[in-house]
Amino acid sequence: MKKSILPIIGLLFLSFVTFSPLPEAEIKDLQGRTHRFSEVIANGDRPVIVSFWATWCVPCIKELDAIAEVYPDWREETGVKLVAVSVDDEKTARRIKPMVHGRGWTDFEIYHDYKGELQQALHIVSVPYLIVIHKGKIVFQKNTYTPGSEEELYDFILSLK
């Protein structure tokens, strides 16, 4: 027990050094077209929010609902783009498209990490998971959603130059 804790304490310290290369992976859009992650996150000098979600994940859906309400304003003010990447696997993948339309998330770009390649590469073990990419780097990440935390996210987006 004690032995197993030591390296973890070491890692805790290391974890405060953040540097995040971006992986490549193939993901699909709602029409079934295959895209590369690097193409999907292209947004010039403007930031990109990548939100990992699933049709069965309640906080994920709450977060996307909350952002959907203010997203047109965010886009206009900062040029930020939101890419919602579903991590659903075959059990629930057929629900992605009806849910996206049925919830009115039509302003987002929606993709499906159908093989889980992107989650694996980004070490994502649970959703919701949200990252902000700016100028080719991950500059922000969070792995929970609480009501109102989208405002904190937007404050961060505004702080990016």
Binding site: R94, R95, K97, P98, M99, V100, H101, G102, G104, T106
Partner: peptide, 15 residues
């Protein structure tokens, strides 16, 4: 076998 239909405001799927 799976079939679906979606448009803004609604979506459905049968598997």
């Amino acid at each position: 076998v799976s079939a679906g239909y979606a448009r803004p405001g609604m979506g459905t799927n049968i598997t």
